[in-house]
Design a protein around this nucleic acid. Sequence first.
DNA 1: TTGCCTGATTAATCAATGTTATTTGTCCAT
DNA 2: ATGGACAAATAACATTGATTAATCAGGCAA
Lengths: 243, 243
Amino acid sequence: MAITDYFVRFLQRRDSLSDKDLARLRAIRTQHVSFAPGEVIVQADRLARRSAMMLRGMAARSHQLVGRPEERVITALHVPGDFVDLHGFVLAGLEHSVVAVGTAEVEFIEHAELTDITENFPHLTRLLWMATLIDASVHRQWLVAAASLRSSAHLAHLLCEIYTRLNAVGAAGDLQFSLPLLQRELADILGYSPIHVNRAVRDLRDRGLIRWSGADITIIDWKGLTTLARFDPSYLDIERLSR
Amino acid sequence: MAITDYFVRFLQRRDSLSDKDLARLRAIRTQHVSFAPGEVIVQADRLARRSAMMLRGMAARSHQLVGRPEERVITALHVPGDFVDLHGFVLAGLEHSVVAVGTAEVEFIEHAELTDITENFPHLTRLLWMATLIDASVHRQWLVAAASLRSSAHLAHLLCEIYTRLNAVGAAGDLQFSLPLLQRELADILGYSPIHVNRAVRDLRDRGLIRWSGADITIIDWKGLTTLARFDPSYLDIERLSR
DNA sequence: TTGCCTGATTAATCAATGTTATTTGTCCAT
DNA sequence: ATGGACAAATAACATTGATTAATCAGGCAA
């Protein structure tokens, strides 16, 4: 199969693609694989020969804690169009696993294809590089949120980000989306106990900002939610300089 | 002037460099600039035409909080040999500033040089890419630390990381190093109040793990410090696959 | 239907952290 | 030497978040 259109649009939103670059992108062969909820997509500390791109559903980067095997921290979430482990091409193995959140479908791309691109398509290479740097930009924003927001504002920031990202690729409805995360998993993301996540959810509900039942979230008051979370989406909209 | 040897060693520790690549690296022209403590090295939201590499001292990535101009969060620290804003070459501007921590000296590299490398030296390009991905790996580890460690263990983790990074480039003594950060700035990194940082410092002292006077830190019990912090340096030692 | 499992929810209590205020120590300019 | 400025250190109190336990609701197998 071929590379997902999501990713092409992701790049085109940020920089122009020459016909030659676009043709090379379209020529990438991919392998489609489905994963059940919680299944490991990319195993930590193992040398990978291919990288995964999200097609449907979501995936999380999961860090096992040393000496506490029952605990983990999630440092990133990925939505359709995201390269979930492009960094695994440049680095020798990842220090974390990538797991499916809910049912997920990915397209695997052989590293040999990426090597060819980096050898012969410098502009495309800089765009792939850019994609990994946007991940890093999101990491930094999560650090800012963790340091400056508490409980419900912190949760609100995550919801604003996920909705914005899902909406950007057309995977969200009008102010509503599906978040197949258990409260326990939200706790692994936010660094709270599951009970405290529950309090935060209730607080957002009580404030009349969201409706949340099962995996379905409806944003009632987008303005109020972004204000509480001090959400500024510019860290997601980073563009490459066209030159 | 020329590129710092720190960076060459940084790359060589992780992958082999061909003579051609090494020669191109050595040919990079740089501009040496000194900064006073707190001075802005790279301004946020401004298009940069050059990127900075640390030569001496330290630098911090500082995020101003929206709506709270007096507050900020520090999402990264950089030591000699680090490219502090290589991502500014690939992205159009940064969403944060880079400021000097203590007195700092950097070498600026024109983006035109980097463009030439990305056009003609694919292996070198992948190594530059790798350098930005190691920054991202550190971001993730900070997220893990923030979510799973508290006060003194969190502070201990930061100290373990900084010492390991300084030691790797020969900028630290035998279990001692200089950390020109105020407790207020440590609070901006760890996401605590300055008072709580003080409590954490005292705790590490009381446990007999460190000695800390002014900017000078001596590690008395490295084993104890790494155990408390659950510090595993592998996220710093990521290597590129040699192929 | 019944029972069981899992996740969400709530309450009560305790520990960690924030806030405000005060004191101490050090450096520096006069 | 003296006073002022600033950072570190400490204390008292308020708030946030963790822990433990219990209850509630829904799905699902026997």
